[in-house]
Structures are given as C-alpha cells and as structure tokens.
Design a protein around this nucleic acid. Structure first.
Length: 276
DNA sequence: CCGACAACCTGTGAGC
DNA sequence: TGCTCACAGGTTGTCG
C-alpha cells in the first residue's frame, strides 16, 4: 500500500487522536508478519502514554512514555498494512493482527499480505534499532540535494529507477513515486545511474521532493485498498501521470506510455520525453 | 562490494 | 460460475 506520502498522511491522521492518549490494553494475535509480533505487547504498552508519532522513511515511530522510561512502537505497513480506528466493540477481522485500546479510541493494525512489521524498541533513540540504522537519507530533508544525489549515484551501475527504490540510499520512494518522479524529471527509468550529470541529479532531486510533497498535500494516492486512518477512502487522490498508464497518452508530449520490467517491478514511462 | 532474482503471503482481476 | 494465472504499494537473503 504505502510509500512515504501514504505513511505521512497516516501519521498526520493518527496524531490528533493519539497524542496524549493512554494505552489501556493491547490485543494481539499470534501471527507472523515479516517477523513475529513482539511477545507480551500488552504488558509492555498498557499504561503508557503516546507522546508523539514520528516517521522515518516508511516506518512509523510511536513514542510511548511509561512512568520511568520511554520506548517506541515501530510499525511498517509493508504492501498492504493499514492503521485505522474502529468502534470499541468491533470484532477482530480476518487480517487484524494488533489492537491498541485507549479511552478515546481503538486503533487496529490490519495487514492481509503480512509484509508489514511491528517492533518494540526500549530506549530513547529508535533509530538505533537495526531495522532503521541502515536507512538512507530522507528525501524531504534539507540535506537531500542534487549534489547529494549525484554523490550517491556515483558507483551505481544499475538503472536509476532501482537506485531510487533502494532504501539504503534514499527512503520512502517506492514503485509508484519512482516512476512519477522520473517522469517529472524527464529521465528514463533505464538511465544508468552513474552516468547522470549533476544537472540531471538536481532536477531529479527536486522532482522527487515535489512529487512527494504534492502527494502528501493530496492525501496520498490510492490504489485498491488504501484507506485513511478514519476509514474513508480518500476523496482526495493524486492522479498519476504515468504509473499504471501503459498504452495511454503521455500528458506532456502525447507519446505513448510504456510498461517495462526492472528488478522484478513494473516501471512506466514515456520513451519520447524521458531521456535515456 | 554490487546487482539480479526469488521468497515471503493474500487478494483481485483477466482470460478461458 | 469457476478455475488458473499473473500481478500488486516492500524488504531481505542468496547467489553469481
């Protein structure tokens, strides 16, 4: 489901209802996501107060203050994960794996494909967690510039699309926004990364930033099962320029959008105006 | 070190 | 209607 914008929109949707909320109890199912859920989340979390929700790449970090210590519930939504509020007596559904019960709200974690991840980090700095420690730069941070991208791309002999999708280089850009950003920058997804000029990298970095910012402002883009945390299926949806548009006209030059396969994933682009 | 690929799992839509 | 197949927003491990 979610790339950076969807995760960020989810975070913003959760913040007002969760900040300051005290967790009363936790229900979890003995299910294996990418890893098994941490054992005993109820005894870990009950009584803690949600102080804040941060985001690192596609991970959500819930700061949970106990009487003596701070810890972080770390959640990754994988391909199909979703956090949403439910009415208190709603029965657990087939793919509901975790429930945080607060006085004012009940939050569910649902994930049919179970590529998601839930972790507990006991400590002040969740970025020390191995799952986060090797993540690349945040594309919306001020340090993400064309010069940075140009440096990061130097010894990458693979297609630029693959580099954009590599979370050790750059977080948050998945299959949709990689295609969309490259379209905006007028660069082919097949362009060999290390052959990009500095000016290309400046345009691309800017394109990534704008694409992600617009998607966040639009409330994320919705394919199939994406839902906002309030359960609504965004009436705001970002319209993709090329993703999923094979055979249709390029909105910039009128050429035909094609679909190719890169590293096992579909890429969409316009061969007429996206330069190899 | 780097890159390509399979694997993890369920749901959905297309085609027959 | 019902079957089979390909494919879907992510990440990790393995192999060359």
């Amino acid at each position: 489901m979610p790339e950076l914008p969807e995760v960020e929109v989810c975070r913003q949707g959760l913040l007002p209802r969760l900040t300051g909320a005290r967790i009363r109890s936790v229900r979890q199912r003995p299910v294996c996501l990418r890893q098994p859920l941490p054992e005993g989340l109820d005894s870990i979390l009950a009584g803690r107060q949600v102080r804040d929700i941060r985001r690192r790449g596609k991970y959500l970090l819930f700061a949970c203050q106990g009487s003596n210590d701070l810890g972080y519930l770390i959640v990754h939504l994988g391909m199909s994960g979703c956090l949403h509020f439910v009415a208190p007596e709603t029965p657990m559904q087939r793919h509901d794996h975790l429930e945080l019960r607060m006085e004012q709200a009940v939050l569910r974690y649902t994930d049919p494909r179970r590529f998601g991840l839930v972790l507990w980090y006991p400590g002040e700095d969740p970025e020390q967690h191995p799952a986060l420690a090797s993540l690349g730069i945040e594309p919306l941070s001020t340090s993400f510039t064309g010069a940075y991208l140009h440096g990061a791309v130097q010894r990458r002999h693979t297609a630029i699309k693959n580099v954009l999708m590599d979370a050790h280089t750059l977080v948050g850009v998945g299959n949709i926004y990689a295609s969309e950003s490259l379209f905006r920058a007028e660069l082919s997804p097949r362009h060999v990364a290390c052959r990009l000029a500095g000016s290309d990298c400046c345009r691309l970095a800017q394109a990534i930033r704008l694409t992600l910012e617009q998607a966040i402002a639009a409330g994320g883009s919705s394919l199939r099962d994406y839902r906002h945390s309030d359960g609504g299926c965004g009436h705001f949806q970002l319209e993709c320029a090329v993703y999923g548009k094979a055979g249709q006209d390029c909105p910039r030059c009128g050429g035909q959008i094609v679909k190719i396969r890169q590293a096992g994933r579909s890429s969409f682009y316009c061969p007429d105006c996206q330069r190899e």
